[in-house]
Design a protein around this nucleic acid. Structure first.
Lengths: 158, 158
DNA sequence: TATTGTTATACTCTATAACTATA
DNA sequence: TATAGTTATAGAGTATAACAATA
């Protein structure tokens, strides 16, 4: 039942994981993981942002982002300062060196991006972007449901 | 440069990670992770398969699949026997209990699949499936390249 | 020689919950 | 009270490389 949904989920899984592996193949040769590159990319695009903003943009979660930022900070690619107006928040941005590293990584990402787009015409990319964009809103966590859910584990004792 | 490719990569990332989190939200309430459910699903579809086949179908890699299977075997959901004709291979299949658990998980997956499909018409799902299906072949690892690649790390000492 | 899977090991991402501090 | 981030901790998936057994 609901074969269409399963097919879509599996196709999305296959596309993403294959892409992610391929990206890692390129990026790890240059000393960063794909996920680290994503953070650098967002910071290069947006300048100084809060960690919360990074969580949203990277589709990640707070503790993952924190761990990754601490790691990148240790390599002096990123700095985390107190936010000028909201004392609770951090203002995260690229260091000078972080920017330089990011720019050097552009050339590493090109063969990857070329492969990714190789089999699409421009209109098809647009169509794919539009279709993909509907998933995050549809799946946005509405944890309220949890209250109504029972822990219906299937018994594991025979 | 190559903004289109980056947008596509980020959109695919966002769609997949959001979906995966949402799926975990449902499945972990029932005692399995999404990735474990994927293996159970493939085994339910295909019957007895080699681990290599599971690697392909799950878009994973051999050691990941092995770890996951050992875990599932420990819970008696899966059995791994010697392959009848190829002595190197394992023949992996669901146990009776594994099948029962899988069937019970169907009802757990339904609200998730409904959410996933909610914003698509049927033709749109077909179009999305077709577009997504082009990525794995385009990204299939051609490790041959590695021989020609240099480790051009960006210097990290100032 | 090539292939299937194992093993050891390490890394990364993910997630939860209790916590601090600021708003 | 609510929010931003921290911390400790745990679990899960990913990846590599050296290895054994079999083809």
């Amino acid at each position: 039942m609901n074969e269409e949904g399963k097919k879509l989920a599996m196709a999305l899984r296959s596309a993403y994981l294959t892409m992610h592996r391929r990206a890692d193949f390129y990026f790890t040769q240059h000393g960063v993981t794909t996920d680290q590159f994503v953070l650098l990319h967002i910071l290069a695009q947006e300048g100084a942002v809060t960690q919360q903003r990074l969580v949203e943009r990277a589709s990640s979660d707070p503790s993952t982002v924190r761990v990754m930022l601490v790691l990148l900070e240790g390599r002096c690619l990123v700095k985390r300062e107190r936010h000028p107006v909201d004392g609770r928040a951090r203002s995260v941005s690229l260091t000078e060196r972080g920017l330089k590293v990011y720019q050097n990584l552009q050339s590493a990402s090109e063969p990857f991006l070329d492969e990714l787009l190789a089999d699409y015409r421009s209109e098809e990319v647009q169509a794919l972007l539009e279709l993909l964009s509907r998933i995050p809103p549809a799946m946005a966590a509405r944890k309220i449901r949890r209250a109504r859910c029972q822990q219906v584990f299937v018994s594991e004792s025979p």
